[in-house]
Nucleic acid binder design. Structure first.
Length: 661
DNA sequence: GTTCTAGAAC
DNA sequence: GTTCTAGAAC
């Protein structure tokens, strides 16, 4: 919203099924607000009876003419239903959406219990109505024309939203953007919605969690038909050691959530799914609760009830990689998940496993590619099984840890680390060679060791424009006009197209270090030097302007040859920042903070790189994470956003800022 | 990496 | 009509 046009009226579309609390929301705001509001409720608009959309529109228009702001109190669940109300917006009138995305059970039980509800939705019919409505639900996006969208998933969120509107005086405005959204709802295609309805009609559960997972799953199933390059990598894994090995559930769930949180940023857009066969699974509910407490993205880490060998055919969830909680001999049998997976995969899995390993130590994992002849591969779309061995706490079994949880927790952590790193190696291999046919991809790397560049250094081909940095790094003395400083190991230059007020590059001078992927343990010293030189420039810039805040880091996949460290101020106030790729390359996890790279190279000998898919993601504010429909709107929001930076960025000195004076 | 531009979105 | 994006060429 430009400053020149003063906004003082708001149309708030409340979005949610019956029982989600739309009427309560508007009533609560109207009771305490200083701003004049009208509530347009389709259920009572016709002299206390239900009316039509047209009547609502007409009444909204007349309320706006009187100078009131309005609540549109009808379900508004799909885009088409909302479109005409969005058009009420214009000069001086903003349109907001408040999404009441409460669990279906809550809405159903509320609308069943309701006696005085104006909509006259009674008894058992309510459940059917709510369910049907939720199936055609389309969550709103900022690009529908809303200047602001706010998501509420529970009563606490609702309270925050209510207070936001209560506090809003007659002339106040709210920041634009999309707030509080938990899952990144990728483009929903009509075909997918249809497909979703079909699968959802299966006898399976009606729980919110399963429904969500199912919807996500189907988006991906659909994608995989379009071509394997579009697949959303998904790892389904059972809880390790908590079944037969009797590991304590509280501690195990802590470790699962901790490790998932650690790995999610590393695996690009890939997803992790904890699977259990039984509905009342204690471990699933513990993990689910802890993950939501930590605000972990529920679209990328969630729990799922089903048979891990039949997730696609029976659960509608396509996972290209599954984990097996195995035994040390890597043999079939023993019951539980191990028996089930070996049985479903047939002899192919045993043969393929033998090629990789004969035995496994606790805490370790081994990645096994499945041949396309394997039933799990062609029926379920599973390309890799990762065997994991967890700690054994079962006193009735040999070699148990005799209740030593210090050791047990350490080994369990190690097991999940090995598992997720194995998954990461699958994701990276496939994104590195996206165009290869399935057949050749399969014969490739399955081990945890990096075998990719040992044989062939099929060095990437670089276009001429991409060689500029390399040339400067090799001959800094020939480029005096642009080089700020150089030594034997590094060159510092201003980025030719700075994406922020201050943006310099620290180039490595070593030949053959083209990008982050080439970095190994032996380059640690060099990376440290680059980091220190970067910090020195930050210090200089902050001496000139103490309000500048910096991040230092690398692009996961650079466009230009020669390893270069970006030192960039976080205002992103620059005309050269023009598109989504620019923005996401510095503000998504595609940007690998130098401190993290250093840590990873030190501990694991190489740095993790994120997928290029991240560059296509939504445009979100680097501070408050609100989403915006296009670059100009994003930039105008970012100019004025004073929110604190996200927790992750604030930690481990990823952000370099002067203390406030 | 940028520039240019067709055509989608508004 | 204008604004904005995305893809091709460099």
């Amino acid at each position: 919203m430009e400053d020149s046009e003063k906004t003082n009226q708001i149309v708030v579309l409340l979005i949610g099924p019956p029982g989600s609390g739309k009427s309560t929301f508007s009533d609560t705001v109207m009771r305490s607000s200083l701003r004049p509001w009208s509530r347009i409720c389709q259920d009572i608009i016709n002299n206390g009876e239900a009316g039509t959309k047209a009547q609502c529109l007409k009444m909204a228009l007349s309320s706006l003419k009187e100078g009131n702001s309005v609540f549109i109190d009808r379900c508004n669940l799909d885009r088409e239903q909302r479109s005409e109300f969005v058009k009420l917006g214009g000069p001086g009138i903003e349109v907001h959406a408040v999404v009441l995305e409460l669990p279906a059970q809550v809405c159903i039980s509320r609308s069943v219990k309701r006696t005085g509800h104006e909509g006259n939705l009674q008894g058992g019919r309510a459940a059917a109505v709510v369910n049907r409505m939720l199936q055609s639900k389309e969550l709103p996006k900022v690009n529908e024309g809303f200047s602001r969208v706010m998501f509420c998933y529970n009563d606490a969120d609702v309270e925050i939203a209510v207070n936001t509107y209560i506090k809003l005086g007659p002339m106040d405005t709210l920041p634009s953007g999309c707030f509080g959204e938990k899952k990144s709802d990728t483009k929903s295609q009509p075909g997918i919605m249809k497909f979703f309805k079909k699968v959802n009609a299966l006898p399976a559960s009606s729980s919110n969690e399963a429904t969500n997972a199912m919807r996500k799953a189907n988006e991906k199933t659909e994608n995989s038909r379009l071509g394997s390059a579009d697949i959303v990598h998904t790892l389904a894994f059972p809880s390790i050691s908590t079944a037969d090995f009797q590991f304590d559930l509280e501690q195990a769930s802590d470790i699962i959530v901790e490790k998932a949180e650690e790995f999610l940023p590393k695996v690009g857009t890939a997803r992790l799914v904890l699977v259990d066969l039984s509905h009342g699974s204690k471990i699933l509910s513990l993990v689910k609760a802890k993950a939501s407490q930590k605000n972990i993205d529920s679209a990328r880490f969630f729990t799922f009830v089903g048979d891990i060998t039949k997730l696609r055919s029976e659960g509608g969830l396509h996972c290209n990689v599954i984990a097996n909680a195995t035994n040390w001999r890597l043999k079939p049998g023993g019951g539980g998940v191990n028996a089930a997976i070996f049985k479903a995969a047939g002899p192919d899995l045993e043969t393929a496993t033998r090629v990789r390993a004969n035995t496994l130590l606790p805490g370790k994992a081994v990645v096994v590619p499945l041949p396309s002849t394997c039933p799990l591969h062609n029926a379920e779309g599973i390309t890799h099984v990762i065997h994991v061995l967890g700690p054994n706490m079962n006193p009735n079994r040999p070699d148990n840890l005799n209740n030593d949880y210090t050791k047990g927790c350490k080994t369990l952590r190690e097991a999940y680390t090995s598992l997720f790193e194995g998954f990461l190696s699958v994701v990276q291999d496939q994104s590195k060679f996206p165009k290869r046919s399935n057949q050749t991809a399969l014969s490739d790397s399955g081990s945890l060791e990096d075998t990719r560049d040992s044989g062939k250094k099929m060095s990437k081909e670089w276009s001429t424009w991409a060689l500029a940095l390399h040339t400067i790094a090799m001959h800094p003395e020939r480029h005096e006009n642009i080089v700020l400083e150089f030594s034997d190991n590094i060159v510092v230059i201003n980025d030719q197209y700075p994406k922020a007020r201050k943006h310099v590059l620290v180039l490595a001078r070593q030949e053959s270090l083209d990008g982050l992927e080439d970095v190994r343990k032996e380059n640690f010293q060099l990376l440290q030097e680059m980091h220190n030189v970067g910090l020195k420039w930050v210090d200089r810039f902050q001496n000139e302007d103490a309000s500048l805040i910096f991040r230092l880091g690398y692009h996961s996949v650079p466009s230009m040859r020669q390893l270069h460290l970006h030192v960039i101020s976080q205002d992103f106030d620059s005309d050269s920042l023009k598109n989504k790729k620019h923005w996401n390359s510095f503000t998504s996890s595609f940007f690998r903070d130098s401190v993290d790279v250093l840590e990873e190279v030190k501990s694991q000998g190489k740095a993790n790189v994120a997928s290029e898919d991240l560059l296509k993601g939504e445009l979100r504010c680097n501070r408050c994470r609100s989403a915006h429909p296009n670059i100009p709107k994003l930039k105008s929001h970012v100019r004025s956003c004073r929110s604190q930076f996200p927790e992750h960025v604030l930690q481990n000195s990823r952000l370099v800022a002067r203390p406030e004076t």
